[in-house]
Design a protein around this nucleic acid. Sequence first.
DNA 1: TCACATTTGTCCGTATGTATC
DNA 2: AGATACATACGGACAAATGTG
Lengths: 266, 266
Amino acid sequence: MELPGSHKTNPAKAPLVTSREVLFNPIKTKRAFEKISTEIKQIIFKGTLQPGDKLPSEAELANQFGVGRQTIREALRLLELSGFISMQKGGAGGALVVDTILNTISNSFLDLFQMKRMTMNEVTVARIEIEKMVLSNVILHAETSDIELLHANVQRAREKIAHGVQAFDDNIQFHKLLAKASGNQVYVIVMESIIAVVAHFRSLLGMDLELSSQVVEDHEKIVEAIIRRDHDTALKLLESHLLDVDRRFKGFISRQKKRGRTEDYF
Amino acid sequence: MELPGSHKTNPAKAPLVTSREVLFNPIKTKRAFEKISTEIKQIIFKGTLQPGDKLPSEAELANQFGVGRQTIREALRLLELSGFISMQKGGAGGALVVDTILNTISNSFLDLFQMKRMTMNEVTVARIEIEKMVLSNVILHAETSDIELLHANVQRAREKIAHGVQAFDDNIQFHKLLAKASGNQVYVIVMESIIAVVAHFRSLLGMDLELSSQVVEDHEKIVEAIIRRDHDTALKLLESHLLDVDRRFKGFISRQKKRGRTEDYF
DNA sequence: TCACATTTGTCCGTATGTATC
DNA sequence: AGATACATACGGACAAATGTG
């Protein structure tokens, strides 16, 4: 791994224009830790540093970049929150290159919900349309291996229900697998984000075994329709499934409102 | 504003379970700056701190939380990158509460693209389907004020073209306005993210005036169809517009490949 | 099992640049 | 223009965690 040379106190504040085609240079003069963060990010983009690799220790990075350790640490915070590295304490610890960017996006999406920049109603409406679109793609060109994953998911969930255990995580996972089966990463990301909000919301409400059981049944029928490549039936099943879950959500809410809870999510 | 009391050296590592329904507490013991970050985030969620408000100075925050300034700084980095605050240096400076979460999501989405976790082809395919869906919503229930914004956008772009100036930003903005006109924030976010990738890609290629001009013409026709509430025509126009832009992208790429550039985006 | 080395996490003091009044 | 207040950054120090011999 190669890291750029050192330059203390930022001599003469050189332009340092490596990017091309940038009209109107950013107003904000980049701070040292930002430069270092983007520098390391570029190295990861280039593939020189890959998930699994380890960055040098903070002290060494400070040496190589010619800055203090505090600056390095703030740069690492950026990379960590962006999903590029994960920190590990102790002897053989350090900054490990990972790729959890997807997670980062879901978290920010959830932040938007908690900032009340979107309502649960908007999420539901968009979710139904998007998920139907995804399902169309799945039926058109899903690989059998992906369909098998869906099938396995439902089986696992069924067994849990049979043992009186909730299948919360599996039910969430089902929709992620659906997006994956579409073969388009963009859908995976969008679905993951939307599902994060739904999961958050559901965990606020609490789930009972009966609902979990109903959900698994719905999922099972959808998978069967997918296997038969029965486009229309699959879409109808999905829509009624999502609408049903939505109704249950709203039922929970209205019952809670009567007990004094006034948070409005819809 | 109220900030929690101080407690140095984390006495006895108390469970501190404020969240309900959390089975399997997180493996990673939260670090001080993470706790402080989520603490402040909660205050913002609650509405006690709103965009426009200012946080106390780093020194004061360090006092109130009973930690060192470095810890506060790292917490502020998290909040800054998450889009909750923006730092301002100088006399009356400090941490200003803002809401640029949307921006954060677009940036991460772009990161995924640069990590080659998705291809330009996937983006285009998903974009066409999603944007058609958005447009359907626009025609069904867009407010006239939103349609006027679309109209004004096209007019502004036309004037720029007439003066021989590119309308890059306006052309990008058009699609964001379209999402806004759908009335669903979820679509706004998804569109913003996808458009961020498209804009990045386009800036890599460079644009000529002729393309910009063609784009504006397409947009204008789409707006006209929206005003007439002509659903089918609008969707057809949009699809051919997006496919056309995609063809031009691919044309650029194949010409560049002949000149030795081998980056594969599709 | 125990000591040791390494590395992150945290604190303090200090200096500097910068925007505001 | 000068004073002030603040973020930015450096360096040294110690605590805590974790793997290793």
